[in-house]
Design a protein around this nucleic acid. Structure first.
Lengths: 179, 179
DNA sequence: AGGTACATGTAAGCTGTTACATGATTTT
DNA sequence: AAAATCATGTAACAGCTTACATGTACCT
């Protein structure tokens, strides 16, 4: 799914602006498994407009910058339907943190410990975010399932890191003494 | 970390060819959190050679195509050290599967069920792969930790999907009946 | 006879990131 | 007075993917 499809997905839940769509990927229900910045969202909305999948209407506001509210078209809904029912690309996951862990022997145990703390804090923040925007009755079942899936993964990560960090740091400290 | 650093990481564990490095990202210890194809590995090795971080030696083989064996240099080791101790980019995770789940109401319950089966099978395959290449005594502590981290995450994903799939499919079936 | 594994590389293209440009209003 | 929020967009660049080009040997 490219940024175009992601925007279409957000717009299928209701009209929105480029700025608001961005927030969905930063804080909202999609934040834990997708990402997109202004530099990809605005061009995507333009292309979607050219293809007739969305329509944008300028809206004047006083005190605030004008904004352009986008709405999905019926052709847009069809395109989303096709994409969701078509073949899906495999997950892509890249983690500098795990890469660093592979070469943990190059990092001081103290620094490693700090980084693991930071990492756990990050997972906790994600968990809180995911717990926040859930639960309200009107949420579609699939969206809520994806949210709870995210909770499960982040919880498991925290549990693993808290349960096993000492083994890693311990092993590295011992190695350091041996040298 | 770009593909250059990934190659440097693999080469820090011992000399290797482009072809073999690729396999590390497809089946080996890095497969669960990084990815790279020939089209990015070969150019990366060339650039690393130009920068003096690796050295490549041509090796003739009979019956098989000649190959070029790369070895990390001391400057290469320093560069890896710097990268691992420097600031790390945040994890990047994009999942078409989770995106599809968000719009599960657009997919038939039957098809959804099939896709969840497939997904669970995929996680099981990853788990098996991760269990395989682990455990041998000589593995550095960090590499093994990253491997077990992967096991924890994939296990949690399986557990969640098996434990909650019926709620999702059930909700969608009910909705279908209601219409 | 056809598929897979071995093995290296290039070129074009697609996608997304980063930095820039602009500017009012509200909060701290 | 400074920083954050609201708000849209472009241009240059970096990075990775895909397709192409080439060829042997082994397995079914």
């Amino acid at each position: 799914m490219d940024v175009k499809m992601l925007c279409l997905g957000v717009l299928s839940r209701g009209e929105s602006t480029g700025y608001e769509i961005r927030k969905q990927f930063e804080e909202g229900s999609f934040a834990h498994f997708q990402d997109a910045g202004y530099g990809s969202i605005y061009p995507a909305l333009k292309k979607l407009t050219d293809e007739g999948l969305v329509q944008g209407v300028d809206q004047r506001q006083d005190g605030r910058p004008d904004r352009k509210v986008y709405r999905i078209t019926s052709r847009g809904r069809q395109a989303l339907y096709d994409a969701v029912n078509g073949p899906l690309a495999e997950d892509k996951f890249r983690s500098d943190f795990l890469f660093m862990l592979c070469f943990a022997d190059l990092v001081s145990p103290r620094e490693l410990d700090r980084r693991i703390d930071e990492r756990i804090a990050h997972h906790r923040a994600m968990l809180e975010q995911l717990h926040c925007d859930g639960g309200c009755g009107g949420t579609p079942a699939g969206l809520d399932f994806a949210r709870r899936y995210g909770c499960a993964i982040h919880s498991a990560a925290i549990e693993f890191l808290e349960g096993h960090r000492h083994e890693l740091v311990g092993a590295l400290l011992q190695k350091q003494v041996a040298e």
